[in-house]
Amino acid sequence: MTFLFKKYSLFFFFLIFNLTIFSTGYTGATELKKPVIVASTTQIADFARQVAGDQALVKSILAPGADPHTYNVTPDDVQIVLGADLCIENGLHLEGKNWMSTLAKDAKKTLITATDGIQALSISQGGQSIPDPHAWFSPKNVVVYVNNITRGIIALDPGNKALYRARAKLFLQQLRVLDAWIKEQINAISPQQRILVTTHDAFNYFCREYRLNEKNDFLSIAPVGWSTGAEVGAGITPERRHKVIESIKASGAPAIFVETTINPKQIREIAKETGVKIGGELYSDSMGPEGSAGETYIGMMRENTLLIVNAFK
């Protein structure tokens, strides 16, 4: 035994030394490991970031500008979800063919549906009643998103509950100020002039909340239905297109809008046919890229409002 120690003394020295160093390093790495939260859309990722702050790593499956209705998952998405501690989806079939819940289910991960508890607007199409998934266009609905997300994050990491609550409270008050500000901006336009025509039916909650499109029961006017995918009541139909053209001609809408996530071909054709200008590009199903004004929810809503109000003037 002594012989062995003598022969391999240097080896034992380095063994003990390295074990000491590695054990210290391992403890540090454990402390630095943050929970990983994976959101389906850029909006939900932003809400989660506002609550989680530096306590968690938040990732979005959709890149800015991507369309959640027609998105096809990739092998990279599977890997991202496999590394998640918590998954969050919008729900109400925003994620075409429920791709986010399928990803989370396959990876056996906890999934939160951020719209749980929201009183969804119903769209009647093709004899069916479909819940409108674009609920984030009303800041009051985002309160429900934030409450659901905060509950989920606290359940994941109860030790930092006070931090999550404090951040959520701050964000909700920012939403309150945003809501009051949008009302102030929209109010500067007469109700008869507030005609919002967009590429697809994403702005129902915005129109209902801020009283736009009075003659369409305060719902959005668009040639393409609630989804750009192949779901029931989705896509473009000749009837919808005709209705939009008639609405523009009857109302004298000064401008119509394209959306960042959808090919603007349809809306450009309608603009040409009716002789109205394109008011600009609205953030709809996705927020803007990093560094743009629309990279956060508040920025996106602010820019959309300014674009709409300026086109109405």
């Binding site: 800041p139 009051k140 309160v143 934030v146 409450n147 905060t150 509950r151 606290i154 609550r165 959520a168 409270k169 909700l172 008050q173 939403l175 309150r176 809501d179």
Partner: peptide
């Protein structure tokens, strides 16, 4: 009642 208040359980 503040509609923008945090409403956890």
């Amino acid at each position: 009642k503040d509609p923008f208040a945090l409403a956890l359980d």
